[in-house]
Simulated scan of single mutants.
Amino acid sequence: MTQPGSRTRPTALAVWLLIAGVIGWWAAFSLTMERLHLLMDPDAILGCDISPLVQCGKNLESWQGSVFGFPNPIMGLTGWVAPIVVGAAILAGARFARWFWLLFELGLAFAFVFVIWLIAQSVFVLGTLCPWCMVTWVVTIPTFYAVTLHLLRTGLVPAPRPVRSAADTLMAWLPLLAVISYAIIAVIAQIRLDVLGAVF
């Protein structure tokens, strides 16, 4: 039986998944290396520690940096492999069953919620902006939006026709949705941390 929306290969989505996956994996790898430096030398000055405001050392050493008992970047090292594999598989002609897409969406939803929580912790509790963490934010947010809208517009997630049409329209506006999300985060960070005052 043909799955809804399976007639058209989502090439643009696949390319984005590859790009986002590689960028996200590199950010996780870089953070993991910084964490290893701290383990070897607690007094080490990390390459991502640019200023008291822009740094990753405080984040890595906080309990928020190891929520599940191990450094958060390890989740990124494993988790970002999924978008890379899915993107490459789509470009190679693979078609996935609905259950696979739903599991993939569930993983991205967890990543999205976790990133939002980490943003709140960074801005409101730790008072820092971690460079590699921000790279992760930048790719996680639109990746979640893109896959969610794809599942809605293709009917892989059952939805009324108006919702599917809206999702199809919003997919074209995905870059703007991402920029708006970044702008909201930037405004909150500026209000809370006075980023511009710290930089200039």
Rank of each mutant, 00 (worst) to 15 (best):
L152D: 00
V163P: 08
N72S: 00
I119R: 04
L91C: 10
F144A: 06
V157F: 14
L152N: 12
M134W: 11
L103Q: 07
Q121V: 13
F68K: 00
L60P: 05
P158C: 09
G69Y: 09
L77Q: 07
L126I: 07
F96C: 03
T128P: 00
F100C: 12
V81P: 08
F70C: 05
F68H: 00
L149H: 08
V135S: 00
W101T: 03
C133V: 07
V113E: 01
A120H: 11
A89G: 00
M75V: 10
L149S: 12
F70V: 13
W117Y: 13
E61N: 08
I141L: 00
W132K: 06
L108Y: 12
T78E: 13
T143N: 02
L118C: 09
W132F: 13
V123M: 01
P158H: 05
A111L: 03
T136H: 02
L118P: 03
L129N: 01
I141M: 02
A92S: 05
V115D: 03
W80G: 09
F104M: 05
V113K: 09
W101S: 08
Q64P: 01
L77D: 10
L129W: 12
Q64H: 13
F110P: 00
R153H: 15
V163L: 09
I84E: 12
G107S: 11
T154K: 15
Y145L: 15
A97Y: 12
I84Y: 01
W80F: 05
L129K: 09
L108N: 06
G76V: 08
L118Q: 08
S122R: 01
V67R: 07
C133H: 02
A82P: 10
T148R: 02
R164N: 02
G127I: 08
W99R: 04
L151P: 04
G155E: 06
G93I: 04
A88T: 08
G107L: 04
M75K: 06
P71W: 15
A120E: 09
T143I: 11
V123A: 04
A109L: 12
T143S: 13
I90Y: 14
L149D: 04
I141Y: 07
F68W: 01
V125F: 00
L151N: 14
P142Q: 02
I74D: 02
A159F: 09
M134V: 10
A94Q: 07
L106I: 15
T136D: 03
G87Q: 04
T136N: 00
F144G: 07
R164G: 05
L149I: 15
T78H: 14
A146V: 08
